[in-house]
Design a protein around this nucleic acid. Structure first.
Length: 698
DNA sequence: TTAGGGTTAG
């Protein structure tokens, strides 16, 4: 098959033929290659990349084409009509178009402008701009102009073809990008990179990697730092470290490892895979680092729960006089959220204000999330209200913030405001909204929003939506309905869905259903320890310690380790962490003394230890002792000692807050006249005047 | 003409 055969698009022919080669009929691939051994000839794409035709072949020959600017600022091509296979969209009524010249936008094209026309260079400069803004309509107009103006000079064909391909890819029109690619008789490394990058952009990772492999088959000369960067991104996204290391070897062999783009991509791949030590070593080996090198390591640390390491990277960056940009700060701010480190978060906020980045949408989104997760939902709302431009992430983050604070009504109101302001909710919006209803016990509302999502917005529920729904129903006490809901799901329920039901079995102490669900989970293969722990806790809470111990033995045999529970508190910008019965803190004696006093006082008010939360078979007295020094109680006692009465005590726990502690903390607010906020893995508990904001529903 | 680090949910 001749190179580019079947192409009806811009790179219709290779332009002026190389000497000795006839243009028509098209020369055979082998003949052309013999005549010009250095010419890189494209092969037809494999069938899987071949798209449907967009336009029928156009008549050849120079055509008069005008590019016009619509009143709304949209470019349009005028000239001999295209012959599309499908009807063209109808023009909107409105004032007549004002034709303009592309390279002289101040002068209309129909006026005399010295015979100047946009040439290949003009268009190649313009197309990336359109791609950047996702201006598909204008890009298509340029494509039409290229066809009509016969911009087919051989050396320009690759440039224009690649720029068009990239424009379509950035506009997520892969069918058309492939069409252009397929029609190009000559391609270069940039062409391949642009198409692979397009597949990555559209999250079609496997196809992107297949394309990368096809590129290598086509010729190693196409291998570049750019295409490797996209391929490494695929490996990171698919968590395919094996493929990533193979690519690393390929990079080293091909000699592009010295390229900073390639190095940063490798660094990012290792960091995202959680190999922070390896990533750090790799980072240290990069001779001349840029902001992206620091950003890649920093975000890798945050994404893998190593927030403290992220701060160290940021410190290093500052020590090297490297100015953090938007992406750096957007990566750093969530580190404060993870640690619930409000002081650090406020410092980061100040830092973005000083740098003039405080009103950037992505920065504001991070700040909304940070303040919400640091217990300051009112500050989240302030940031949200002051944003000059919001996107769907801003709304989702604010709704999620209300959700974790148990403010389901506020979340619903905000969602209605979102609709009124013309923002289209996405699938994540409904996850946030249903989860917010779930945290507030708004079962009917949650069901309504699930139906609205599917019927009104046509959003197909994902597994995450089903998890939220099961959580909503089961947590609300509708265990049987939740079970029926799982049975009726069109998707096969995974461990997380059943895990949500099992969690509710623990809350509502339904042992029979818990055992049944647990058997299902074990057949599916439990992920991590959570489900074993839940089942064991269900047995323990019912006093069936033998069976609880049995589950723990199975857990041990299967090699799962339970993560230890711990709590931490930020005092004057320093974080203090405690595990249960911890005596390692320098102020340990004072902390224990204060906690003992508090316990005496709250017992006077009627507090009684709920020993059902002790998960081992101990004597009653020992059980009370085990509860007494839970990590959250120790952290609160340290907060009472360290903070003035008017200050809120804010404690974070890596697990769900213990039920006995939940009761004790309510009493603590009374005997020490304090406001206490506890953030656990699920939500916030605002304790004040003997009450908790969760209404005992968590 | 291409590319490397970024925010939300579960």
């Amino acid at each position: 098959m001749a190179a580019g055969a079947g192409a009806a698009h811009l790179p219709r022919a290779a332009g002026p033929c190389p000497p000795g080669v006839r243009q028509n009929p098209r020369p055979g691939r082998a003949r052309l290659q013999r005549a010009h051994p250095r010419l890189l000839l494209a092969r037809p794409l494999p069938r899987r990349y071949r798209p449907l035709p967009l336009y029928a072949p156009l008549p050849r020959g120079p055509q008069q084409v005008h590019l016009s600017l619509r009143p709304q600022g949209m470019l349009s091509a005028r000239g001999p009509p295209c012959r599309p296979h499908h009807p063209r969209p109808r023009r909107r009524r409105g004032p007549p178009y004002r034709p303009v010249c592309l390279h002289r936008p101040d002068r209309p094209l129909h006026q005399d402008h010295g015979g100047l026309r946009p040439n290949a260079s003009t268009l190649v400069s313009l197309l990336p701009l359109l791609a950047q803004h996702g201006a598909l309509f204008q890009g298509t107009s340029i494509h039409a102009y290229c066809l009509r103006a016969c911009l087919e000079q051989n050396e320009e064909q690759v440039l224009i073809g690649t720029a068009l391909l990239d424009m379509y890819a950035k506009c997520k029109q892969l069918v058309y990008a492939c069409r252009v690619f397929h029609g190009m008789p000559v391609r270069n490394d940039v062409t391949w990179s642009a198409l692979i990058g397009g597949f990555v952009l559209c999250d079609r990772m496997t196809e992107a990697f297949n394309l990368f492999k096809d590129m290598l088959v086509e010729g190693l000369c196409f291998l570049s730092a750019t295409s490797v960067a996209s391929a490494l991104r695929v490996c990171a996204s698919l968590a395919d470290l094996h493929m990533g290391t193979q690519l690393h070897a390929l990079i080293a062999k091909s000699g592009i490892h010295a390229d900073l783009t390639a190095s940063n991509s490798l660094l990012s791949m290792y960091a995202k895979a959680g190999l922070i030590n390896e990533a750090t070593m790799f980072f240290d080996e990069i001779a001349v680092k840029d902001t992206i090198s620091y950003g890649a390591l920093l975000s890798g640390c945050v994404q893998n729960g190593k927030a403290e390491e992220a701060f160290l990277v940021f410190k290093k960056m500052q020590a090297c006089n490297m100015e953090p940009d938007i992406a750096t700060m957007v990566s750093l701010i969530p580190a404060c959220s993870h640690l619930a480190a409000l002081q650090h978060g406020k410092c980061s906020h100040g830092s973005v204000i000083i740098r003039g980045l405080a009103l950037e949408t992505s920065i504001c989104n991070s700040l909304i999330d940070m303040y919400a997760k640091c217990g300051k939902i009112d500050l989240s709302r302030q940031v949200f209200d002051k944003m000059p431009a919001r996107d769907v992430v801003s709304w989702n983050t604010m709704i999620a913030g209300y959700g974790i604070h148990g403010l389901g009504k506020e979340a619903t109101t905000l969602f209605l405001g979102m609709k009124n302001q013309g923002f289209a909710p996405d699938d994540v919006t409904f996850i946030c909204l249903i989860a917010a209803c779930s945290h507030s016990g708004l079962v009917t509302e949650g069901k309504h929003w699930f139906d609205t999502m599917t019927h009104k917005y046509g959003i197909l529920p994902r597994m995450e939506h089903y998890i939220c729904m099961v959580d909503l129903l089961a947590r609300g006490g509708l265990l049987d309905e939740a079970y029926q809901f799982i049975q009726s799901m069109p998707l096969k329920a995974d461990v997380r869905v059943w895990g949500a039901l099992l969690g509710a079995c623990r809350i509502h102490k339904n042992i029979d259903l818990g055992k049944q669900v647990s058997r299902i989970i074990q057949k599916l293969g439990p992920e991590g320890t959570g489900n074993f722990v839940l089942l064991s806790n269900i047995f323990s809470a019912a006093g069936r310690f033998d069976e609880a111990a049995e589950v723990r033995i199975i857990q041990k045999v299967k090699g799962f380790k339970k993560s230890p529970g711990y709590s931490w508190i930020e005092i004057n910008g320093s974080l203090h962490a405690f595990v249960g019965g911890d005596q390692s803190h320098p102020c340990s004696r004072d902390i224990y003394h204060e906690l003992d006093n508090i316990m005496v006082d709250i017992k006077k008010l009627g507090y009684q230890a709920d020993t059902s939360f002790v998960l081992q078979d101990l004597e009653e007295e020992e059980k009370e002792k085990a509860l007494l020094y839970h990590s959250e109680k120790l952290a609160i006692a340290f907060g009472v000692l360290s903070l003035n009465e008017d200050k809120t005590i804010f404690v974070t726990k890596n697990l769900r807050v213990c039920g006995d502690c939940h009761t004790a903390i309510k009493y603590m607010t009374l005997v020490r006249n304090r406001t206490i906020i506890v953030r656990d893995t699920n939500r916030f508990h605002h304790f004040k005047n003997g009450q908790c904001s969760c209404g005992n529903f968590w």
